[in-house]
Simulated assay, not measured.
Amino acid sequence: MPAAPVILSLPIADRSVSYRFYRDGLGLDAVGEPADDGLPEPLQFVVNDGLRLMLVPTGGFGWVIGPREVAPAGRSECLLGLSADSTEEADAIVERARAAGGEVVTEPTSQPWGYSGVFADPDGHLWMVSTDPGL
Rank of each mutant, 00 (worst) to 15 (best):
G62D: 04
V6Y: 01
L51A: 12
R23A: 14
G101V: 11
A97F: 01
F21L: 05
S130T: 14
V56S: 03
L28G: 04
E89W: 00
L79Y: 03
S18Q: 09
D29A: 13
A100Q: 05
G117A: 06
M54I: 04
L135I: 14
G50W: 03
F21Q: 01
P2H: 07
C78P: 00
G66Y: 03
L80C: 07
P108I: 11
G124D: 05
R68G: 10
L79M: 15
G134R: 10
D121Q: 04
G134A: 13
W63Q: 13
G60Q: 14
P5Q: 08
F21C: 07
L43W: 01
A84S: 14
S130C: 12
I93L: 14
M1F: 04
R20S: 15
D49C: 01
S18A: 15
S16C: 04
D91Q: 08
T87G: 07
V46H: 06
G32N: 09
L80W: 06
I12G: 05
W63A: 12
A71H: 03
R96I: 06
A73E: 11
V129Q: 01
A4S: 13
N48H: 10
L10M: 12
G81I: 08
M128Q: 15
P34L: 08
A120H: 02
E107I: 08
G114V: 05
V129F: 01
A120K: 02
G117R: 02
S9F: 01
S110T: 14
A71N: 08
E69Y: 00
A71C: 05
G25A: 10
R23Q: 14
E103P: 00
D49P: 09
E89I: 04
E88N: 06
W63N: 14
Q44W: 01
P72S: 13
A90L: 10
G38V: 09
P108R: 06
S86R: 07
E103R: 12
S18P: 07
M54F: 02
V6K: 02
Y19F: 15
L55S: 04
R15D: 05
N48A: 09
P57D: 10
S9D: 03
R15V: 13
Q111H: 11
G134L: 09
P122K: 04
S86G: 15
S83L: 11
P112W: 00
W127Y: 14
S16Q: 10
R98C: 10
M128G: 00
I7K: 03
P122T: 12
P133A: 14
W127K: 07
T106W: 02
G59Y: 01
R96Q: 15
W113K: 05
V64I: 14
G66S: 10
S110R: 10
G134Y: 02
M1D: 11
R20L: 07
E95R: 07
G124H: 03
I93Y: 00
A4D: 08
R75G: 00
R98N: 09
M1A: 14
G25F: 02
Q111Y: 02
L53Y: 01
P2N: 11
D121W: 00
D49H: 06
G32Y: 00
S110W: 02
V118T: 15
